[in-house]
Nucleic acid binder design. Structure first.
Lengths: 349, 349
DNA sequence: CCATTCTCTGAGAACGGTTTCAGTTGAGTA
DNA sequence: TACTCAACTGAAACCGTTCTCAGAGAATGG
């Protein structure tokens, strides 16, 4: 690997002059230097430049699970922004584990200029430590309790949950269940709160056995849906708080041959590529995904510009949107008298 | 940010001694140094260490599209390996563009210790340049013409295509179409070749208008499926060469209300999370995904161990597996006499 | 008690760039 | 011819580590 000294020697100038030439300054021996650079196929060492400048031009991106299509889309959005800059992305998964997140962050702050994080829980303290280390931090998808002073790109989860609730109520459901996400994450908590709020406002109560909490993974959606279906009096509609759990719930309903939406309506949070192709096509609360990633990256890159470096935290809250497809419908038997007879698990076809 | 000099001064020793202590050597003033490190919350600069050692402990991962569930899974597999090491992943998308890939690689070789690449085309020359630069390179999913001297983790694409063809033939199809991927990629070319070979071996010809080539993206699957359906004599079965194009084809069939598998059988390459949930559940050629990523990463990390650094290239070729679900079935009317009547586009229900 | 080994230490030179600072050069002017 | 000033240059310091090497001090052996 040729160094700047080698090039300088070959061109008959000092390393300083080569450095100046490469950064665009006018230099007397430009041709000679260019020739030497070409002949030796010289590229400056990024590491040496980083050491000198104190900047790595690398952004750390920490997400719970890259195979979750939502996060894949978010990362793609980030990439679409960095592509036009000289920043690159260092990626890490936390598998929804705070410990893993702590380890990743502690490591990362030594090698990146900024971090975009979807924290594993709202209570994490490590992110505060990241800021102390002088590394700008942007939250995406999930917030932190006391995170108001950090940039963030979120969605109005409470309203999204509310939309889901109101949609089911509007169809006439009254026995409604929720499969929520981890209650120590912002989306998990807020989606549930918004959902419950909608029901309460309509005078519909959600009994504890219908108010379940999962962990955002497919398996928990599957298990919790199974448990709902085995209740003596199962709900007529389920709200599932993220894409993977919705998939799990769908599998459970399929396994038990529950008719959707005849016997059970299902509404999810976050659309899927295959959402329209599923049997039945899924009704979901949708939100911008790629855009969220792109916005978060732009927010972060702004922090590197002197004029914005000390601005107040910018909190971008995007709106959710109901996409009505065919997995929700009015309940088959509108609740008439108090049911003494227990509703058997129906078999279709 | 405290430096090793600050710590040394505080502990009353030289920087060299602090460095030695930190790397586990025995040192007389261990307690004093430890105390200084703790009090100042000192962490060595990764950049300075890199400059000194010549290693960045970073692996570049270059894939066409991280939102493709296959590549997301592959990356996750890689991450599951690096997690237990002190290597991290730098991620880049190429959007299937050779130019973008060239730019990314040229940049990357200056900042990573090794690269795992799914090349945009088989003809790319830049990867050879990567090796010249002394950066170990491993191919995953896709190979390079003349890439035999590089480590690689691939699947037996030809055999996979053949399996797909034989499956359709076995069901009795004779009017069979293929929606292949880019023919300048290994998987695109080999899957098609294997598929055609199976048909040819059975004496079934695939006319040019049934032998279509897409670009691995959903939209091309959609468009090509549409064009197949608009033929005067459409096929009774389609083989689609990757997950996204299969999704596109499925959407086209859905849009035209084509009955699957009644009117049209569909077999895809690569399974999807939602594969079993789709209407109908998809028959696919499956392959290990997470494992492929993990294997590729292990292959690469081996190159950093002196004892393996100069070993011959290791080429791991994994097997594909047919997963029979409900999107393939015998053709409704087994081909009897030469059809003069043109088969209208059927409407169901 | 001296010679020999062993263990630990710090100064200083890398690593490969950029930046500062004090020149040097040469053109333009009096 | 001497003087001024702008444009360019190179030596050396610096970024924060690790490594080399010579030397100091302690332990061991005779």
């Amino acid at each position: 690997m040729a160094t700047i000294h080698d090039v300088a020697a070959r061109a008959g100038v000092s390393p300083a002059t080569v450095s100046r030439f490469l950064r665009g300054q006018r230099v007397r021996s430009a041709e000679a230097i260019q020739a030497a650079v070409d002949e030796m196929d010289y590229w400056p060492s990024a590491t040496a430049q980083s050491l000198q400048s104190g900047r790595t031009h690398t952004i750390g991106v920490v997400v719970p699970d890259i195979t979750n299509p939502y996060f894949a889309a978010v990362v793609k959005g980030m990439e679409s922004v960095t592509r036009h800059t000289d920043y690159r992305i260092q990626l890490a998964n936390t598998d929804e584990s705070s410990e893993r997140e702590d380890a990743v962050l502690a490591e990362m702050i030594r090698r990146v200029d900024g971090i975009i994080l979807a924290p594993a829980t709202e209570q994490d303290q490590t992110p505060l430590y990241v800021r102390d280390a002088g590394v700008p931090l942007v939250f995406v998808d999930r917030d932190l309790l006391g995170g108001e002073h950090f940039d963030a790109v979120l969605v109005n989860n409470a309203k999204g949950g509310q939309q889901a609730g109101e949609h089911l109520l509007g169809l006439g459901h009254t026995r409604i269940a929720a499969i929520s996400g981890s209650q120590d994450t912002t989306p998990g908590r807020c989606r549930r709160e918004g959902f419950v709020k909608a029901l309460t406002a309509a005078g519909v109560e959600i009994p504890p056995e219908h108010d379940l909490v999962g962990d955002f993974r497919e398996e928990s959606g599957y298990q919790l849906a199974l448990s709902l279906l085995s209740l003596p009096e199962p709900p007529t509609a389920i709200f599932s708080a993220n894409n993977l759990m919705t998939l799990g719930a769908l599998k459970a309903l399929r396994d038990l041959r529950t008719d959707i939406p005849g016997e059970m309506s299902l509404i999810g949070f976050d659309d899927l590529d295959t959402g329209p192709l599923l049997r039945p096509p899924l009704t979901v609360i949708d939100r911008p995904m790629v855009e969220q990633g792109a916005l978060a990256m732009r927010l972060l890159l702004r922090r590197f510009e002197d004029q914005y470096a000390n601005d107040a935290a910018r909190r971008i809250i995007l709106d959710t949107k109901l996409i009505e497809r065919a997995s929700t419908a009015p309940p088959r038997k509108p609740r008439t008298a108090a049911g003494a007879g227990r509703t058997g698990r129906g078999r279709q076809r």
